[in-house]
Lab assay of single mutants.
Amino acid sequence: KLKCQHCNHLFATKPELLFYKGKMFLFCGKNCSDEYKKKN
Rank of each mutant, 00 (worst) to 15 (best):
G22M: 06
K30R: 10
C32D: 01
G22F: 03
S33L: 07
E35K: 08
G29V: 03
C32V: 00
G29C: 07
C4W: 00
L26V: 14
H6E: 13
K3N: 12
E16K: 13
F27A: 02
A12I: 15
A12W: 05
F19W: 12
F11P: 10
C4R: 00
N31D: 07
T13I: 14
K39E: 12
C4E: 00
Q5S: 03
H9W: 08
L18V: 12
F25V: 12
N40S: 14
E35G: 12
M24A: 08
Y20K: 06
K1R: 02
H6V: 08
L10S: 09
N8I: 04
F11L: 05
D34H: 06
L10C: 10
L2V: 13
L26W: 09
K30M: 09
H9R: 14
K37P: 06
E35A: 11
A12E: 10
S33M: 10
L2G: 15
K39L: 06
L18M: 07
L18K: 09
G29T: 05
K21G: 13
L26C: 13
F11R: 03
F25S: 10
K21C: 10
N8Q: 14
K30T: 06
H6S: 08
N31W: 09
K23I: 05
A12S: 08
C32A: 00
S33G: 05
L18E: 06
C4A: 01
L10G: 14
L10E: 15
M24D: 13
L2W: 06
L17M: 14
E16G: 02
N40D: 13
M24S: 13
C28V: 00
C7S: 00
L2C: 07
K39Y: 14
K14T: 11
D34Q: 11
C32L: 00
F19Q: 15
A12G: 11
K38D: 06
F27N: 01
Y36H: 12
N31Q: 10
H9M: 14
K38P: 04
H9F: 04
Q5E: 02
N8D: 08
K37S: 08
S33F: 02
K37C: 08
C4H: 01
Y20T: 13
E35L: 07
L26E: 15
F27Y: 10
A12F: 04
K21E: 13
Y20E: 14
G29M: 08
F11S: 07
K14S: 08
C7A: 00
N31C: 07
C7H: 01
L17C: 12
G22S: 10
F27R: 00
C7E: 01
F25C: 12
N31Y: 05
G29S: 06
E16N: 02
Y36C: 03
F11Y: 01
M24V: 04
C28K: 01
K30A: 09
S33W: 06
Q5L: 06
C4D: 00
Q5V: 08
N31L: 09
M24G: 09
D34L: 05
N40T: 12
F27K: 01
K38L: 07
K14L: 07
F27V: 04
H6C: 10
H9S: 11
Y36P: 01
K14D: 08
L17S: 15
K21N: 11
C7F: 00
D34E: 11
L17V: 10
L26N: 15
H9E: 11
K3S: 13
L10V: 13
T13D: 05
K14M: 02
A12N: 03
N31M: 05
K37A: 13
Y36F: 10
C4V: 01
K23V: 07
C32Q: 00
G22W: 03
K37T: 07
A12C: 07
K37E: 14
K30H: 09
F11W: 03
L2D: 15
K38S: 11
Q5A: 12
N8P: 05
L18G: 11
E16T: 10
C28Q: 00
P15D: 11
G22Q: 12
Y36R: 02
K14R: 07
L26G: 15
K1L: 02
Y20S: 13
Y36N: 04
F27E: 01
H9N: 12
L17A: 13
H9K: 14
K21M: 11
K1T: 07
Y20A: 14
K1D: 12
F27C: 11
G22E: 14
K3T: 07
K23W: 02
S33V: 09
C4M: 00
N40K: 06
Y36E: 05
K3Q: 11
K30P: 06
N8V: 07
F11C: 07
L18C: 06
F27I: 02
C7G: 02
L26R: 15
K21Y: 07
N31S: 10
Y36D: 01
K37D: 09
D34K: 15
G29A: 11
N31G: 11
Y36K: 01
K23Y: 03
E16R: 07
P15H: 03
G22V: 02
L10F: 15
K21P: 06
F19V: 12
N40G: 07
P15A: 08
C28T: 00
P15R: 06
K14W: 02
E35P: 02
F19A: 14
L2P: 08
K1Q: 03
C4K: 01
Y20G: 08
C28D: 02
K14G: 04
Y20D: 11
K21D: 13
T13Q: 07
K1C: 04
D34A: 10
G29L: 02
K21T: 11
L26T: 14
H6D: 07
F11D: 02
D34Y: 08
L10I: 05
C4L: 01
K14N: 07
T13R: 07
N8K: 13
L26Q: 15
C28P: 00
T13Y: 11
F25Q: 11
K23M: 10
F19Y: 10
K30G: 11
F19D: 15
L10D: 13
E35T: 06
K23N: 13
K1G: 03
T13V: 07
F27W: 02
N8M: 12
L2T: 15
H6R: 11
T13C: 03
Y36M: 07
K3M: 03
E35W: 06
K30C: 03
L2F: 13
T13W: 04
A12V: 03
K23F: 04
K3W: 03
H9Q: 14
N8S: 14
C28W: 00
K3F: 06
P15W: 01
F27H: 02
K3G: 08
H6K: 01
L10Q: 14
C28F: 00
A12T: 09
K14Q: 06
K23E: 15
C32Y: 04
P15K: 10
S33Q: 13
L2A: 15
H6G: 10
N40C: 05
H9P: 01
P15T: 05
F11G: 04
K39A: 14
L2I: 09
E16C: 07
L2Y: 03
M24C: 12
E16Q: 11
K39P: 09
F25L: 14
F25W: 11
P15E: 08
H9V: 14
K37H: 11
F19G: 09
T13G: 12
C7W: 00
L10R: 15
K38V: 12
C32E: 00
N31T: 08
P15L: 01
K1S: 05
F19S: 14
F11I: 03
F27L: 08
A12H: 05
D34P: 01
K14F: 02
L26M: 12
E16H: 02
C7L: 00
N40R: 10
Y36A: 08
T13M: 06
L18P: 02
K23A: 10
P15V: 02
C32W: 00
Y20F: 14
M24Q: 15
F25T: 09
G22P: 02
T13S: 04
C28R: 00
